[in-house]
């Protein structure tokens, strides 16, 4: 008997007390917890809460407008981004208008990990953001690039639009496509492994900066 068959038959034997007619849906799962929605997705309150919660876990946050975003991107990169930043394919052209072309690194053709390691930072969009937990979600969509881009460089600048902000985890999961590789980012990398004392900045970007439009 294969291990697969063996394990499956052990499971069936172990569940002798479960009746043959019982279907998975017969085991009730009460979902009386909050589905979210407060504050409403995309609202000013949601953006404000996101900003607070991001800052609470050590991210630098700025509120910007559609008009000031390009300047804010350029300034943030100038201050913290170092000499060369990766800009993934699909990052809006108008948002990178203030960046000097010689400082921009493209991932097409694909950068090796060592090239990526030499980059000072990365600027991306996001797929969604969760206000209540201070979380950005990346799904590799336009302007986000593959996962390594937001991981290896030490600085991550992320631009989020107000309409992408939801209040809660349930709302965010409902918007996301599980078949894409997803990364939920809540603040810069951190550890509490030494005396449970939280230290920000281990292997992932040690600086996370977020521009919130609207």
């Amino acid at each position: 008997m294969s291990a697969r068959e063996d394990v499956l038959s052990r499971i069936r034997r172990a569940l002798a007390d479960v009746g043959d007619t019982e279907a998975p849906a017969d085991v009730p799962v009460p979902r009386h917890y909050s589905p979210g929605g407060t504050p409403p997705a995309g609202s000013q309150e949601a953006v404000k809460l996101l900003a607070e919660r991001l800052a609470d876990y050590g991210a630098a946050v700025q509120r910007v407008t559609a008009e000031t975003v390009a300047t804010a991107v350029a300034r943030a990169i100038a201050v913290r981004g170092g000499d060369c930043v990766v800009v993934p394919r699909g990052f809006p052209r108008e948002w990178q208008a203030g960046l000097a072309p010689e400082r921009v690194l493209s991932d097409a053709p694909r950068l090796s990990v060592h090239e990526l390691d030499r980059a000072d930072g990365v600027v991306t969009t996001a797929a969604a953001a969760i206000a209540g937990t201070g979380t950005l979600v990346l799904d590799g969509g336009p302007g986000q690039g593959r996962r390594a881009l937001t991981l290896v460089p030490d600085y991550h600048l992320c631009v989020v639009r107000a309409e992408q902000v939801v209040a809660s985890v349930p709302e965010a999961l409902a918007r996301l496509d599980p078949l894409r590789p997803l990364t939920f980012v809540s603040g810069p990398s951190a550890t509490s492994d030494i005396e449970l004392d939280r230290v920000e900045g281990v292997h992932g970007p040690r600086t996370l900066e977020v521009l919130l439009i609207g």
Binding site: G132, T133, G134, P178, L182, F184, S186, G204
Partner: peptide
């Protein structure tokens, strides 16, 4: 409230 990184892949 949320850990710094959660990765999901399919």
């Amino acid at each position: 409230r949320m850990n710094p990184y959660t990765s999901t892949w399919t």
